[in-house]
Nucleic acid binder design. Sequence first.
DNA 1: TCATTTGTTGCTCAACATTTC
DNA 2: AGAAATGTTGAGCAACAAATG
Lengths: 473, 473
Amino acid sequence: MPVNSFENYPMTWRPSKTQLKSPLYMSIANLLEYDIVNGYLAPNTKLPPQRELADYLDINLSTITRAFKICELKGLIYAQTGKGTFVSPNFGLEISIVDSTIENQNYIDMGLIKPFDDFNLVTAEAIKKLSDKGCLENLLNYSYPIGSPYHKMTAMKWLKNFNLSVKADNVAITSGSQNSVTLTLISLFGAGDKIAVDMYTYPNFIELANMLNIKLIPIKGDAFGMNPEDLDVQCKLNSIQGIYLTPSCNNPSAILMNMQRKEEIARIIKKNKLILIEDDIFSFIAPRHYLPISYFVPEQSIYICSVSKSLCSGIRVAFLYFADKFSANIIRGIHTTTIKTPALNVEVVAELINTGLAEKIVSDKLIIAKERNEIYKKYFKINNENENPLSFYRWLPLDQKYDANEFEKLALKHGIRIYHSNRFLVANLEEKQFLRVSLSSCLDSNELEKGLKILKDILYDTTYYKNNNSLII
Amino acid sequence: MPVNSFENYPMTWRPSKTQLKSPLYMSIANLLEYDIVNGYLAPNTKLPPQRELADYLDINLSTITRAFKICELKGLIYAQTGKGTFVSPNFGLEISIVDSTIENQNYIDMGLIKPFDDFNLVTAEAIKKLSDKGCLENLLNYSYPIGSPYHKMTAMKWLKNFNLSVKADNVAITSGSQNSVTLTLISLFGAGDKIAVDMYTYPNFIELANMLNIKLIPIKGDAFGMNPEDLDVQCKLNSIQGIYLTPSCNNPSAILMNMQRKEEIARIIKKNKLILIEDDIFSFIAPRHYLPISYFVPEQSIYICSVSKSLCSGIRVAFLYFADKFSANIIRGIHTTTIKTPALNVEVVAELINTGLAEKIVSDKLIIAKERNEIYKKYFKINNENENPLSFYRWLPLDQKYDANEFEKLALKHGIRIYHSNRFLVANLEEKQFLRVSLSSCLDSNELEKGLKILKDILYDTTYYKNNNSLII
DNA sequence: TCATTTGTTGCTCAACATTTC
DNA sequence: AGAAATGTTGAGCAACAAATG
């Protein structure tokens, strides 16, 4: 029998005792998952303390712990010793950001980060030129699963632009950055492992970690990006195995990490023997002389440089640097996730890079990025001077607390798609709210201007939400 | 103190007590992994009973169980209640079968299954035609991550050839069959889950499962393929969640599962609520009227049809059918592993399929496959009448017991690459040994004939191995 | 500063199931 | 058929660690 009577005791979550089956821990985990997924438990709800639940259900404390652990690794809840256990902030939202609504788009897209798709014409041209050259049949077999000598050479050349000089033995061709991250996590991590990330993190990475039951440890940040002291502290507390960083232009905060901070972070990485996963998809909008973090910890790093944002998104090619000691595992991971990246696609990218077209695309994109940012600054000021001035999106602080879901819906109703910061939260330790405003997915500058105007009205013209009680919280 | 003295007691594995650190279970798992990976414990070695080890180390039985579980999920060992725990049979061999030795190839390849790469000329032609048509830029963006309407339609058309009629809502385009299996396992299974497989299974699947810590349960087979009774028995014992099958031409056993066996297996799948992963990469060499197993259990199936063997290996495209209830998870898995399959590549495949070139490639390949099999039959007879007569490889029973590693080395020394059945073993419950003899990777029929001659000599001319003491075991 | 609240972790225990003889 | 050997599983216990006030 329970020690206390819980009949009139308030509990935010009260699993039905009659529904409990053996095994108990599994049964509890399933009930909790059901209630979160179906919205009976709102994001950020504090769950009862484990001891209280154990007492209420008249079972051992560690049985609750085990049940909670299952849900935590799925990303449904997060727990903090001394504080309690909470429902994850982003579960109500469809976390992954994917373009499934291409048809009948009747809004201005400031949600997705499309990388100025007009430039795909240049890539299309390159394909045509290639196919006129002939010899395509040699690109259509199983040979060179991690990249032909020519393709690796091209990768090395491209990486050198971003100040990473590597040997051919440490380079592989992969199918874009998402595939790179997937194979890295599968190859070098296991379920239950922990990876440090920014408080606000790229949702596709969060979702991948959730699917693989890898626990993300959010690290506090400041104006310069991830805070090295907090990283060090969390490493001591948590036995963290890896760290995921996007230093050239953090997604979503747009912070460009300066060299001093990069070195500090590298020092902590070294000290704690972390595996660094450096996703440098925005390397091309960083200052030319900036060095990647991997430069400082080459022997414990995976560096990923996708061409999706810089050159062409749909071609699905990335270059991956791996430290010597990861070689066997990474090669096995490539083999296991994709067998190989189609050499046809790599050849297209190589054509762009080796003819100089790639440099041209990049410099032209930078000009447009600058223009779009000028437009943005006509409506909002840039919040943090450390943000990348050429970022394809901006990180707009909100003055009031909104219900994330309601806000996005309201914006869509008024013709703009935009993402609230909750989508990027690993755990809700941050009080501040933001919007990520994409500048690169609109058809043109006029549309962007129209969208920004609507956004400003929604934020500052009170008539927009006065009839919406649940919007502001 | 231990209850018994172990000083003079024989134990196949004796972890050093002084090296044990806390946590004990982790420490023990690491020691065991080290000794297996470094060859101190040979494949198939029987480990001491868990109770004995616990007694020896003076710790609790379940601590050993936990340590063993970690290694078992990595595929290093396998355990059987009542019998004992054994080192996995295939760990000494480089399990994944990958073409990394393309340079300086000075042997006849009867190892890999290359799908008659000369036909890549047809695909190359199709690419040229496509690029002349123009409009490629629309294939180079983030749109339609699971496949455009046209590409899905093409997928449905192709699947219909193999008697699977599906709705557009249940089809996705993926990046080849390995990618399909990866995303399926990530989306629908978790670490510790169990999947039933044939006793001899495609090594890439074994390796993937090992990396994801999914446990494979080998099911006994007979001349017709997987045995339904044993499947049912194992399901009852093991709480198995899924099953992986390649019924049109099992890899490596070449068995073509007949319709009766398919229906029996389907019945067991239904009864035990398994998720069926049907990898039908060889559907095009099955009889025209054969139905896939998924036809009988459409509501709990994932059906994968890659074009790598039928049309072109390096283009990396597969079509995937998923049951309604898996829809959200599978779409999320596609997004999480690759974002999307490059539409350029899908367009190439669609061009082949919709112009009729695909049918032509397939029928031409069947003719060559038949020829190659005729040649094979000049040297060896086909062992099992249920094997697919058009298989790209044959499954040759060995009369003697060889050391797998030594045999492959000897063959290579004499100019042929060939794979021993141990590479395909999940657990060594089978006494019989085989060779998988690829017929499709040689340059031409002459080379194949040369290779088969060498193989026959190695097997029956004793001078080939009389000086090799460790070859026969 | 210290006690209280709350989550974490590794190990032990006991009941159970299968295989073998 | 039944006993012994062997692996499996869920739950409980206790020491520990962080956050809070």
